[in-house]
Amino acid sequence: MRILLIITVFFAAMFFCKAQNKMFTRTGKVYFISKTSIINIDGTNNRTICFLDTKTGEIAAGMAMKHFEFTLPLAEEHFNENYVESDKYPNAKLSGKINNFDKIDLNEQKTNKVEIIGKLTFHGVTNDIKITGILEIKKDKYIASSEFEINIDDYKIKVPKLVDEKVAKVIPVKVYFELFPHTGK
């Protein structure tokens, strides 16, 4: 009897695991700009990966830092070599959870304001982060977008005195993900 119960629970758990739906993208966009009175430096990553667990509201996003493209000459090289040190820390990752996700009706096509609490890791530093964003439920996809700021000091990005005035300390970041059902491939 006991064994039967355990087996039942186990199968229920497996079913629960399998039934988890995931939304996913490999072409999420992340944009940042460093604005100073001297120069604006902006970069876009068009190949950000994001998974959203539609059962739990958990979210995992990541990117290769080398996929950032810049409008300024040499900015890509400086960004990778001197600031984020992409050889040492190739990826940035966000792992978090949408607050009160169970209150969102995923069957209703509408725009939901959401808050994500999680951990952002880049340049080898992990910090707790709380960001607000929008989760738009569409017929066949979700659109997740957000704007938040990061302080480069929190991630130990060193800016030499020589170019101190050319790099902003607080960097606004914009995120735009179109998430489609994850088929496992």
Partner: peptide, 10 residues
């Protein structure tokens, strides 16, 4: 596993 799952996928 719920969080690990998507982290692993990522």
């Amino acid at each position: 596993t719920a969080q690990d799952d998507i982290d692993n996928l990522l």
